[in-house]
Amino acid sequence: MAADGGQDLITLTVDKLSADRVSESVTCPSCGAVSLFIGTTRDHFEGKKVIRLEYEAYSPMAESELRKICSEVRTKWPSVRHINIQHRLGVVPVTEASVIIGISSPHRKDSLEAVKYCIDTLKATVPIWKKEIYESGEPCWKENKECLWGDTGKDPKQS
């Protein structure tokens, strides 16, 4: 938590995420900007129809890595007021949100940059995994190109 009362909210949940709730949770009277990122689940991969996605996490470590990201955001953008990062786990039907990040700041530049930093860093460092289940064929564990020890950084088709 920031010294001046800014809140770091972190949630891992099997429940459906709500952009409205995240937005409301970071709104504050001194802030002229709330920036939101909503990551949703796609319905296709390389021509295969995706039926659903399943997420799992190393939850205590995922929460600890998310807290590190919040702390880095506050160092890089000290004007940031509230941060809320929610990640869904378990089965996520296609088109529903798997991750929502909301950040408020007095002016838009800081919260916009901070939201981008949050999602890019989350993909590289937070221990969460996604499996795609297709209409036909074997399910597939995905790899983020941002993950330094995966090998899909070499494969521009995946993300």
Binding site: Y58, S98, V99, A124, I128, W141, E143, W149, G150
Partner: peptide, 24 residues
């Protein structure tokens, strides 16, 4: 990361196998 550095494990420590990440 996998390497030669000794880990200094203690009884009851938690070690996790972490395949490439795909959160987000």
């Amino acid at each position: 990361p996998l390497g030669e550095q000794p880990l200094t494990l203690r009884d009851g420590d938690e070690v996790a196998v972490i395949p490439p990440l795909s959160g987000g």
